Lab assay of single mutants.
Amino acid sequence: NKFNKELQWATWEILNLPNLNEEQVKAFIDSLRDDPSQSANLLAEAKKLNDAQA
């Protein structure tokens, strides 16, 4: 389904953001699992944090 694909994509993207530490990655992945419908928003937040920590 749509959420499953978005969840998989967001998870992959977050795992590959180079500037997030392990705790941050875990927190984003946990949030994705808690509410897959928020995957686009969570991915945007993760990318923003990744850029800020570059």
Rank of each mutant, 00 (worst) to 15 (best):
E13N: 09
A52P: 02
S31H: 07
L49P: 00
K26M: 09
L15I: 06
E13Y: 15
S31K: 14
R33L: 14
Q38Y: 08
L43M: 07
L42Q: 04
L42A: 04
N19K: 04
V25S: 08
W9G: 03
P36D: 02
A54K: 06
P36L: 08
F3P: 15
W12M: 06
A44V: 10
L43D: 00
S39I: 15
W12F: 08
E6Q: 06
I14N: 01
Q8N: 03
N1P: 14
W12Q: 06
L49A: 06
L32D: 00
E45M: 15
N41Q: 09
N16F: 04
N21H: 08
Q8G: 03
N21G: 08
K26D: 07
P18F: 11
D30R: 15
Q38I: 09
E13L: 12
I29H: 03
L7T: 05
E23Q: 10
A10R: 03
A46E: 00
F28L: 04
R33Y: 15
E6P: 04
E13T: 14
V25E: 02
L32S: 01
L43T: 05
D30A: 15
N21T: 12
D30G: 14
D30I: 13
S39K: 05
N19H: 07
K5I: 04
S39D: 02
L17S: 02
L43H: 03
L20W: 00
A46I: 02
A54W: 13
L32W: 02
L42G: 01
V25R: 15
N41D: 07
S37A: 08
P18Q: 10
D34M: 14
A54R: 05
E13W: 15
I14T: 01
A52T: 11
S39T: 08
N1F: 01
L42H: 04
E22H: 11
F3N: 14
L43I: 07
A44I: 10
E45D: 08
N1S: 02
A27M: 12
L15H: 07
D34L: 11
A27N: 09
S37M: 08
S39Q: 05
E13A: 14
S37L: 07
N16S: 10
L49E: 04
N50I: 01
V25Y: 05
K26Y: 12
P18N: 09
N41G: 06
D51L: 15
Q53N: 08
A52W: 09
N50Q: 02
L15R: 13
L42D: 00
A40H: 07
E45F: 14
W9I: 12
A10M: 07
K2Y: 08
K26F: 10
S31F: 09
L49V: 09
L43A: 05
W12E: 05
A40N: 08
L42I: 11
L17F: 05
W9L: 08
L20T: 00
Q8E: 14
A46Y: 03
N50P: 00
N50T: 01
K26P: 00
A27I: 11
F28K: 00
R33V: 11
A10I: 10
K48L: 09
Q24M: 04
A44E: 08
S39M: 14
N50Y: 01
N41I: 10
F3L: 12
T11M: 13
T11N: 03
A54N: 09
R33T: 14
N21E: 06
T11P: 01
S37E: 05
P36Q: 04
L17M: 10
K5Y: 05
L15S: 09
W9Q: 11
N21F: 10
S37H: 06
I14E: 01
W9T: 05
L17G: 00
K2A: 15
L49K: 05
Q38W: 05
L20S: 00
A54P: 07
